[in-house]
Design a protein around this nucleic acid. Structure first.
Lengths: 332, 332
DNA sequence: TCACGACGTGCAAACGTTTGATAGAACGTA
DNA sequence: TACGTTCTATCAAACGTTTGCACGTCGTGA
């Protein structure tokens, strides 16, 4: 039907402006070397013709692509969605596009997708909680990588540090009279899960509380529901969940079991993502994924010297108090 | 530090295999014209050297890029997230990448981003509920476009048709004894909002129910909370919300107002996205955004003849019954 | 008047592919 | 032996940029 008109290129602008192709190119890449008059003239002509440079050709010639890649296990996870939104916003202001890939936490797909995106990206933002460190380093040897919520020697990263916030929440529970609480873990093998578990362990110990770790969860909503039996059996008065999703599952499970939150059991989440939608409002750790996303992009775009290749930028998480925590039940 | 090794290219493989560059190229693009022996040999060498073609160069030469662009008002909306996930999954099987852009529903950003993505995409999947039809057509004249949840003459689209499902839900409410219900609208100017409102209007009329339209909402969670006063004042026993987000806001608002759902008021959502997380479980319309995403990509990738340029593919939504709807309160 | 830096612009090669035109080899046929 | 066919593989141009180099043309100081 209607023939699509091919976009204007340097050559067209050059002819229309009566200058050479290289001059037009320079108007856009480094105008300082040109006379102001020429620059202005070419700019006008280009604008009139609605010229915009072909990113593909530019990337090919310069050897550096116009995109960043974002690889995540599950884009459906609101933490990741918020991260994506922020990353994209930051990229846009630099005229950079964002290529997204969802790996379903599958190593084979991760490998395949990393390779595919690498070719058209300036760098990769990688969230791969379970990928082996050596594989990670292998990818980082190919293309600049910023790891999200994971630290591996020799690879730059941006991580949320929840230890402090979890400490606050442990104290909070202690002050509410809780003496025995549980940690409901996330996917085994996940870096973030190891960190959170370690933090909770250390902080409950410091606070003189008993801790029960309820293993064997994959941290879905349904796992949360299913965990209720073990929670009840363990006789705890408070539970710290790996994330908001599993925590709200647990709340639902408790409800079905005839227990109310926080009267019978206090529940704490992580990520501050469902927090308002759930009843009762979730006391949780705000991971500030938007900040993480922005920083990751920034780190990719600004070279900032190779010396801190191995540094982690850490974003300190904060505790958010809502109504899923309350005074410990007298007896359980 | 560690120098990044540049990826292998056609030339390297050609030298290693003792053939010309063009031969190697043809091994990957159309091997039929080559002798089977050569093809196999080159394949082996290429595999050994871990060669993969440079997508940028290929796109430049062929004039068709290796990505599709996805432009949405708010990627944080779970409907869009699910759509993205499905679209990306479908694309990956065709070796195609997905460029995502979030426009914050801002026309200026939409324009800018459409232009930016267009250059490196084979086509655009566009969700722009409020963009003018002429602007939309303008973009479609530049690059293949598939519209999501919107129909505009002359531009292909994939839409969810909720009329039937909304009809079911209206009947459902009627059978539960409701006689007067409200529609809590979405963003004014949104195509989907017009469709849903129209469907609800038609179906309540058919069913002999009274309908109140509570205008002036932007369909955020907080708008839902804020809508409670008008809901109560209107004296309805049931509310159909524009989407799950505004519906769960309303539920929260009602709760704060001392009303319970569904005992005092029944609430229906749309999109089936928060449905399980909210208390009580939301009766809603499942829009099947995953199917929409897959179809949109498919439509972009398979040319399928130009004749049906103007056709809309429609995905029929279905009603999902949970516990936010129940028998009408005797008096309100 | 001449030599000499600036300064502004153009030429042409390169980035890694794809692909139409073409050349050579192998074969069967007259 | 010469010739047409068919099959493979190579040549080289092109895709739209960027950029090192070279080429004028000035204005300046001796």
């Amino acid at each position: 039907m209607s023939q699509r008109t091919s976009p204007t290129k340097l050559k067209d602008v050059a002819e229309a402006a009566g200058v050479s192709i290289s001059t037009v190119s320079r108007v856009f890449s480094n105008p300082e070397r040109l006379s102001p008059a020429t620059v202005q003239h070419v700019r006008e002509v280009a604008a009139r013709m609605r010229f915009s440079p072909n990113v593909l050709a530019r990337a090919l010639k310069r050897g550096v692509a116009a995109n960043v890649g974002l690889i995540v296990p599950d884009i459906t996870n609101p933490y990741m969605t918020a991260l994506l939104k922020a990353a994209q916003g930051r990229s846009r202001t630099s005229g950079v596009g964002v290529l997204v890939a969802d790996t379903d936490d599958n190593t084979e797909i991760e490998r395949q997708v990393a390779e595919q995106l690498a070719r058209q990206s300036r760098g990769l933002i990688l969230s791969a909680p379970r990928m082996s460190a050596s594989h990670l380093r292998e990818i980082a040897a190919t293309i600049p990588v910023v790891l999200v919520n994971r630290v591996v020697d020799g690879v730059p990263s941006v991580v949320t540090d929840s230890e402090w916030a979890l400490g606050e929440l442990v104290s909070h529970l202690r002050e509410l009279g809780h003496r025995r609480i549980a940690y409901l873990p996330g996917p085994s093998g996940s870096w973030a899960n190891r960190q959170r578990r370690k933090a909770v362990t250390a902080r409950t110990h410091e606070a003189g509380l008993e801790l029960v770790v309820l293993d064997g969860t994959a941290a879905t909503y349904h796992d949360g529901i299913a965990a209720v039996d073990r929670v009840v059996a363990s006789g705890v008065t408070g539970v710290i969940g790996f994330d908001d999703v599993v925590a709200s599952g647990l709340i639902e499970g408790l409800r079905r079991h005839g227990r109310t939150v926080p009267d019978d059991v206090s529940v704490v989440g992580h990520d501050d993502i469902l927090a308002e939608l759930v009843q009762p409002g979730l006391t949780t750790v705000a991971g500030h994924s938007d900040r993480v996303g922005r920083l990751a992009v920034q780190r990719l775009l600004d070279p900032e010297g190779e010396q801190d290749r191995e540094t982690s930028i850490v974003v300190r998480a904060t505790a958010v108090y809502r109504s899923s925590t309350g005074p410990a039940a007298a007896n359980v």
